[in-house]
Design a binder for these strands. Sequence first.
DNA 1: AACGGTACCAACCGCAATCAA
DNA 2: GTTGATTGCGGTTGGTACCGT
Length: 274
Amino acid sequence: MGRAPCCTKVGLHRGPWTPREDTLLINYVQTHGEGHWRSLPKKAGLLRCGKSCRLRWMNYLRPDIKRGNISTDEDDLIIRLHSLLGNRWSLISGRLPGRTDNEIKNYWNTYLSKRLLSQGIDPNTHKKLPKPVVQQVSKRKNSRGSNNKQNPKKAKATLEPAVIPKVHLPKPSKATSIYFPRNDSFDQCNTFSTVCSSQGEEGKGTQVIQGPWSEYVSHGENGTGFLSESGCHPRVPSIEGDNSLEKLYEEYLQLLKANEDQLQLDAFAESLLI
DNA sequence: AACGGTACCAACCGCAATCAA
DNA sequence: GTTGATTGCGGTTGGTACCGT
Protein backbone atom coordinates (compact mmCIF):
# COMPACT_ATOMS: atom_id res chain seq x y z
CA MET A 1 0.00 0.00 0.00
CA GLY A 2 1.59 3.21 -1.07
CA ARG A 3 1.70 5.63 1.72
CA ALA A 4 1.86 9.33 1.23
CA PRO A 5 4.43 11.16 3.30
CA CYS A 6 3.04 12.75 6.37
CA CYS A 7 3.72 16.11 4.92
CA THR A 8 5.31 17.80 2.00
CA LYS A 9 8.76 18.69 3.10
CA VAL A 10 9.03 21.67 0.85
CA GLY A 11 9.18 24.95 2.71
CA LEU A 12 8.93 23.43 6.13
CA HIS A 13 11.26 24.22 8.98
CA ARG A 14 13.46 21.51 10.33
CA GLY A 15 15.97 21.21 13.08
CA PRO A 16 15.83 22.78 16.50
CA TRP A 17 12.67 24.51 17.56
CA THR A 18 12.69 28.19 18.32
CA PRO A 19 10.99 29.62 21.41
CA ARG A 20 8.46 31.27 19.13
CA GLU A 21 7.54 27.95 17.55
CA ASP A 22 7.26 26.38 20.96
CA THR A 23 4.93 29.13 22.07
CA LEU A 24 2.76 28.74 19.01
CA LEU A 25 2.53 25.01 19.54
CA ILE A 26 1.80 25.33 23.23
CA ASN A 27 -0.84 27.94 22.67
CA TYR A 28 -2.52 25.82 20.07
CA VAL A 29 -2.55 22.66 22.14
CA GLN A 30 -3.68 24.65 25.12
CA THR A 31 -6.67 25.84 23.17
CA HIS A 32 -7.53 22.82 21.07
CA GLY A 33 -5.98 19.86 22.78
CA GLU A 34 -3.72 17.18 21.41
CA GLY A 35 -4.37 15.32 18.24
CA HIS A 36 -4.95 16.18 14.61
CA TRP A 37 -1.26 16.62 14.25
CA ARG A 38 -1.41 16.77 10.51
CA SER A 39 -3.62 19.78 10.38
CA LEU A 40 -2.17 21.35 13.49
CA PRO A 41 0.82 23.14 11.97
CA LYS A 42 -1.30 25.01 9.49
CA LYS A 43 -3.85 26.02 12.07
CA ALA A 44 -1.21 26.95 14.58
CA GLY A 45 0.76 28.94 12.07
CA LEU A 46 3.74 26.66 12.19
CA LEU A 47 5.93 25.78 9.28
CA ARG A 48 6.53 22.30 10.58
CA CYS A 49 5.19 18.93 9.68
CA GLY A 50 2.65 17.44 12.03
CA LYS A 51 4.95 14.66 12.97
CA SER A 52 7.55 17.11 14.11
CA CYS A 53 4.95 19.00 16.15
CA ARG A 54 3.79 15.85 17.83
CA LEU A 55 7.32 14.83 18.67
CA ARG A 56 8.17 18.22 20.06
CA TRP A 57 5.07 18.19 22.19
CA MET A 58 5.42 14.63 23.43
CA ASN A 59 9.10 14.81 24.19
CA TYR A 60 9.61 18.32 25.34
CA LEU A 61 6.65 20.61 25.75
CA ARG A 62 4.18 18.46 27.62
CA PRO A 63 3.68 19.99 31.03
CA ASP A 64 4.08 16.76 32.91
CA ILE A 65 7.60 16.12 31.77
CA LYS A 66 10.25 15.71 34.38
CA ARG A 67 13.66 16.34 32.98
CA GLY A 68 17.11 15.31 34.06
CA ASN A 69 18.26 13.83 37.34
CA ILE A 70 17.16 10.31 36.83
CA SER A 71 17.33 8.81 40.27
CA THR A 72 18.95 5.52 41.17
CA ASP A 73 15.53 4.07 41.82
CA GLU A 74 14.49 5.05 38.34
CA ASP A 75 17.75 3.63 37.01
CA ASP A 76 16.98 0.37 38.63
CA LEU A 77 13.41 0.32 37.50
CA ILE A 78 14.39 1.06 33.92
CA ILE A 79 16.82 -1.82 33.94
CA ARG A 80 14.28 -4.18 35.39
CA LEU A 81 11.54 -3.10 33.07
CA HIS A 82 13.92 -3.38 30.16
CA SER A 83 14.74 -6.91 31.13
CA LEU A 84 11.05 -7.68 31.03
CA LEU A 85 9.91 -5.61 28.12
CA GLY A 86 12.96 -5.13 25.95
CA ASN A 87 13.25 -1.99 23.89
CA ARG A 88 9.63 -1.05 24.31
CA TRP A 89 10.49 2.40 25.46
CA SER A 90 7.00 3.75 25.41
CA LEU A 91 5.84 1.04 27.78
CA ILE A 92 8.78 1.63 30.04
CA SER A 93 8.27 5.36 30.01
CA GLY A 94 4.62 4.83 30.74
CA ARG A 95 5.69 3.40 34.07
CA LEU A 96 7.98 6.25 34.88
CA PRO A 97 5.88 9.33 35.45
CA GLY A 98 7.26 12.37 33.74
CA ARG A 99 9.75 10.51 31.63
CA THR A 100 9.49 10.28 27.89
CA ASP A 101 10.32 7.28 25.80
CA ASN A 102 12.93 9.32 24.00
CA GLU A 103 14.62 10.31 27.22
CA ILE A 104 14.67 6.78 28.52
CA LYS A 105 15.92 5.48 25.22
CA ASN A 106 18.71 8.06 25.18
CA TYR A 107 19.53 7.36 28.79
CA TRP A 108 19.65 3.67 28.14
CA ASN A 109 21.83 3.97 25.09
CA THR A 110 24.25 6.48 26.53
CA TYR A 111 24.52 5.25 30.08
CA LEU A 112 22.66 2.21 31.30
CA SER A 113 23.65 -0.20 28.55
CA LYS A 114 27.27 0.75 29.06
CA ARG A 115 26.98 0.32 32.78
CA LEU A 116 25.53 -3.15 32.36
CA LEU A 117 28.31 -4.03 29.99
CA SER A 118 30.84 -2.86 32.52
CA GLN A 119 29.18 -5.14 35.04
CA GLY A 120 29.51 -8.04 32.68
CA ILE A 121 25.85 -8.10 31.78
CA ASP A 122 24.59 -8.19 28.26
CA PRO A 123 22.27 -5.19 28.00
CA ASN A 124 20.18 -6.96 25.39
CA THR A 125 19.60 -10.22 27.17
CA HIS A 126 20.37 -9.13 30.74
CA LYS A 127 22.41 -12.25 31.12
CA LYS A 128 25.95 -12.55 32.32
CA LEU A 129 28.55 -12.17 29.65
CA PRO A 130 31.43 -14.62 29.61
CA LYS A 131 33.83 -11.73 30.10
CA PRO A 132 32.97 -8.40 31.65
CA VAL A 133 33.66 -5.52 29.34
CA VAL A 134 36.07 -3.29 31.15
CA GLN A 135 35.03 0.27 30.83
CA GLN A 136 34.26 3.33 32.82
CA VAL A 137 30.86 4.76 32.67
CA SER A 138 29.98 8.16 33.87
CA LYS A 139 26.73 8.75 35.59
CA ARG A 140 24.96 11.59 33.92
CA LYS A 141 25.11 14.53 36.23
CA ASN A 142 22.59 16.75 34.63
CA SER A 143 20.80 16.89 31.41
CA ARG A 144 21.04 19.79 29.08
CA GLY A 145 17.33 19.91 29.18
CA SER A 146 17.44 20.82 32.78
CA ASN A 147 19.21 23.99 31.90
CA ASN A 148 22.38 22.90 33.48
CA LYS A 149 24.94 22.86 30.79
CA GLN A 150 28.01 22.83 32.89
CA ASN A 151 28.35 19.09 33.22
CA PRO A 152 31.36 19.37 35.44
CA LYS A 153 34.12 16.95 34.68
CA LYS A 154 32.17 14.88 32.32
CA ALA A 155 34.02 11.67 32.95
CA LYS A 156 34.87 9.97 29.76
CA ALA A 157 33.02 6.80 29.19
CA THR A 158 35.96 5.39 27.41
CA LEU A 159 33.93 2.76 25.83
CA GLU A 160 36.17 0.64 23.87
CA PRO A 161 33.95 0.17 20.90
CA ALA A 162 33.14 -2.90 22.81
CA VAL A 163 31.44 -4.40 19.87
CA ILE A 164 28.01 -4.51 21.32
CA PRO A 165 26.49 -7.59 19.87
CA LYS A 166 23.36 -6.47 18.18
CA VAL A 167 20.57 -8.85 18.91
CA HIS A 168 17.72 -8.55 16.52
CA LEU A 169 14.75 -9.74 18.40
CA PRO A 170 11.54 -10.28 16.56
CA LYS A 171 9.48 -7.15 16.69
CA PRO A 172 6.98 -7.40 19.44
CA SER A 173 3.42 -6.97 18.45
CA LYS A 174 2.25 -3.54 19.27
CA ALA A 175 0.82 -3.28 22.69
CA THR A 176 -1.66 -0.63 23.48
CA SER A 177 -0.19 1.64 26.01
CA ILE A 178 -2.30 3.31 28.54
CA TYR A 179 -3.58 6.47 27.03
CA PHE A 180 -6.59 8.58 27.32
CA PRO A 181 -8.37 8.92 24.07
CA ARG A 182 -7.02 11.53 21.78
CA ASN A 183 -8.30 15.00 22.23
CA ASP A 184 -9.75 14.12 25.53
CA SER A 185 -6.67 14.74 27.54
CA PHE A 186 -7.87 18.11 28.64
CA ASP A 187 -11.26 16.99 29.67
CA GLN A 188 -10.55 13.64 31.17
CA CYS A 189 -7.71 14.59 33.34
CA ASN A 190 -9.01 18.00 34.08
CA THR A 191 -6.56 19.36 31.58
CA PHE A 192 -2.95 18.61 32.23
CA SER A 193 -1.50 17.39 35.40
CA THR A 194 1.44 18.66 37.18
CA VAL A 195 4.31 16.35 37.71
CA CYS A 196 4.00 14.02 40.60
CA SER A 197 7.34 14.04 42.22
CA SER A 198 7.46 10.69 43.82
CA GLN A 199 10.80 10.85 45.39
CA GLY A 200 14.07 12.44 45.86
CA GLU A 201 15.36 15.80 45.12
CA GLU A 202 12.26 17.91 45.00
CA GLY A 203 10.83 16.55 48.15
CA LYS A 204 8.05 14.13 48.62
CA GLY A 205 4.64 15.03 47.50
CA THR A 206 5.57 18.31 45.98
CA GLN A 207 4.29 19.11 42.59
CA VAL A 208 6.93 20.32 40.32
CA ILE A 209 6.65 22.02 37.03
CA GLN A 210 9.80 21.69 35.08
CA GLY A 211 11.08 22.30 31.63
CA PRO A 212 9.91 24.91 29.23
CA TRP A 213 6.46 24.93 30.71
CA SER A 214 7.58 26.75 33.73
CA GLU A 215 7.73 29.76 31.47
CA TYR A 216 4.41 29.26 29.79
CA VAL A 217 2.25 27.98 32.55
CA SER A 218 -0.27 30.41 33.79
CA HIS A 219 0.40 31.27 37.34
CA GLY A 220 -3.18 31.86 38.22
CA GLU A 221 -4.77 30.33 41.24
CA ASN A 222 -4.01 26.65 41.14
CA GLY A 223 -2.82 26.87 37.60
CA THR A 224 -6.25 27.82 36.50
CA GLY A 225 -7.44 26.30 33.34
CA PHE A 226 -4.34 24.57 32.21
CA LEU A 227 -2.63 22.84 35.01
CA SER A 228 -4.74 21.03 37.46
CA GLU A 229 -4.15 19.96 40.97
CA SER A 230 -5.38 16.51 40.21
CA GLY A 231 -1.89 15.16 40.16
CA CYS A 232 -2.81 12.34 37.87
CA HIS A 233 -0.40 11.39 35.21
CA PRO A 234 -2.17 11.40 31.89
CA ARG A 235 -0.24 8.45 30.63
CA VAL A 236 -0.43 6.36 33.76
CA PRO A 237 -3.96 6.51 34.90
CA SER A 238 -3.74 3.16 36.56
CA ILE A 239 -1.11 4.26 38.95
CA GLU A 240 -2.05 7.48 40.52
CA GLY A 241 -0.71 9.44 43.35
CA ASP A 242 2.69 10.51 44.39
CA ASN A 243 4.19 7.11 44.94
CA SER A 244 3.39 5.38 41.71
CA LEU A 245 7.00 4.61 41.03
CA GLU A 246 7.48 3.22 44.47
CA LYS A 247 4.38 1.11 44.15
CA LEU A 248 5.49 -0.42 40.94
CA TYR A 249 8.94 -0.97 42.27
CA GLU A 250 7.63 -2.65 45.39
CA GLU A 251 5.32 -4.74 43.31
CA TYR A 252 8.25 -5.94 41.32
CA LEU A 253 10.45 -6.57 44.32
CA GLN A 254 7.75 -8.60 45.98
CA LEU A 255 7.50 -10.76 42.94
CA LEU A 256 11.21 -11.26 42.95
CA LYS A 257 11.28 -12.13 46.60
CA ALA A 258 8.20 -14.23 46.68
CA ASN A 259 9.03 -16.39 43.79
CA GLU A 260 11.69 -16.52 41.20
CA ASP A 261 9.23 -18.30 39.03
CA GLN A 262 9.55 -16.95 35.54
CA LEU A 263 5.86 -17.41 34.99
CA GLN A 264 5.06 -14.84 37.58
CA LEU A 265 7.50 -12.42 36.15
CA ASP A 266 6.03 -13.00 32.76
CA ALA A 267 2.61 -12.34 34.18
CA PHE A 268 3.89 -9.13 35.64
CA ALA A 269 5.28 -8.14 32.28
CA GLU A 270 1.96 -8.98 30.72
CA SER A 271 0.20 -6.78 33.18
CA LEU A 272 2.25 -3.88 31.92
CA LEU A 273 0.97 -4.48 28.46
CA ILE A 274 -2.60 -3.69 29.26
C1' DA B 1 44.52 28.79 21.67
C1' DA B 2 43.48 25.30 18.53
C1' DC B 3 42.17 20.93 17.48
C1' DG B 4 40.15 16.38 17.71
C1' DG B 5 37.48 13.07 20.24
C1' DT B 6 33.53 12.01 23.00
C1' DA B 7 29.04 12.35 25.30
C1' DC B 8 24.64 13.91 25.26
C1' DC B 9 20.16 14.53 23.50
C1' DA B 10 16.78 16.76 20.31
C1' DA B 11 15.04 15.72 16.12
C1' DC B 12 14.43 12.94 12.05
C1' DC B 13 13.19 8.73 9.48
C1' DG B 14 10.80 4.66 8.24
C1' DC B 15 7.69 1.29 9.44
C1' DA B 16 3.64 -0.75 11.65
C1' DA B 17 -0.71 -0.25 13.87
C1' DT B 18 -4.93 1.89 14.00
C1' DC B 19 -8.66 4.62 12.38
C1' DA B 20 -12.13 6.15 9.22
C1' DA B 21 -14.58 6.48 4.96
C1' DG C 1 -13.22 -6.00 3.15
C1' DT C 2 -10.39 -2.40 1.04
C1' DT C 3 -7.91 1.66 0.85
C1' DG C 4 -5.83 5.77 2.27
C1' DA C 5 -4.85 8.85 6.18
C1' DT C 6 -3.15 9.42 10.69
C1' DT C 7 -0.71 8.34 14.73
C1' DG C 8 2.74 6.00 17.56
C1' DC C 9 7.01 3.68 18.12
C1' DG C 10 11.87 2.46 17.93
C1' DG C 11 16.25 3.13 15.57
C1' DT C 12 19.36 6.42 13.99
C1' DT C 13 21.52 10.79 12.99
C1' DG C 14 23.45 15.30 13.57
C1' DG C 15 24.49 19.43 16.23
C1' DT C 16 26.73 21.10 20.11
C1' DA C 17 29.07 21.40 24.50
C1' DC C 18 32.76 19.74 26.93
C1' DC C 19 37.19 17.52 27.74
C1' DG C 20 41.97 16.22 26.98
C1' DT C 21 46.09 16.91 24.43
